[in-house]
Structure formats: C-alpha cells, structure tokens
Nucleic acid binder design. Structure first.
Length: 105
DNA sequence: ATCTTGACCTAAT
DNA sequence: CATTAGGCCAAGA
C-alpha cells in the first residue's frame, strides 16, 4: 500500500485531541521528514475534500493561524479553536505551548 | 523529465 | 520590527 504523504498527514491530524493543536513542523518531524513542513501545509490544502481532518487545529510554529485565510471567511478557524477552549489573540494562539499536542502521544 | 507553487522554518539584513 | 533570501520536499501541469 503506497499511501501518499497526504494520507499520512491526515492520519496524524485526525488524531489531534479536542482542544489541542500542533504545528506543521511537528507533524513533518513525526513523519520523519522534518524539512517537509511545507508539504504538510500543502496536504492540508488538499484536505478540503475530507471533513475528518481538523485543519483548524494545525498552525505554524509560532502558533499563528496562518491558514485561517483559507477557511470560509476570516473568523471560522478562530471560532472553531475557541469553541474547543483555545483562546486566540491577534490571530495567535494564547499559551500555545500549553495547547500543543505532540503526535507521538 | 522540467517548471511552478505552497497553510513552513531559520537566519540575515 | 519588516522584509528578503535560501533551503527543503511533494504533487500537479
């Protein structure tokens, strides 16, 4: 079974617990390709076909909602995160480290 | 096979 | 603090 890089990313993102977030680099690192962080983000772009992939729980290394612009409108991503107990300020996750989830977990 | 793009990351200026 | 540059990888045309 040759699973595309995307499917591997989806598998990890789907495992993100509610109220937790992770970064593209963390996922890429977990997959064994720490330098493919961009590809992870790109995979998320294709995740639009799937509704099982909480892309809103994936942010960049700074905890910044870089992909929020790709969601419907400009506040959907923030709404989803806040709905899970995560606080956002200036498009950035508050206490990012506290909400960070390690894929290895 | 070549070229382009992209929701990144780090460092330098 | 804002901007630029380089690197790195995968998929689509």
């Amino acid at each position: 079974m040759s699973e595309s890089f995307f499917e591997r990313v989806y598998s990890v993102v789907r495992k993100i617990p509610e109220g937790k977030v992770t970064s593209y680099g963390a996922i890429a690192n977990y997959l064994g390709t720490p330098k493919s962080a961009r590809v992870v983000g790109w995979a998320m772009n294709a995740s639009h076909d799937l509704d099982d992939v909480p892309a809103h729980r994936v942010v960049n290394r700074n905890g910044l909602l870089t992909g929020k612009h790709f969601f419907s409108g400009s506040n959907l991503m923030r709404e989803l995160l806040e709905s899970e107990g995560i606080k956002i300020e200036n498009d950035k996750i508050v206490d990012f480290e506290h909400h960070f989830w390690n894929p290895s977990t």
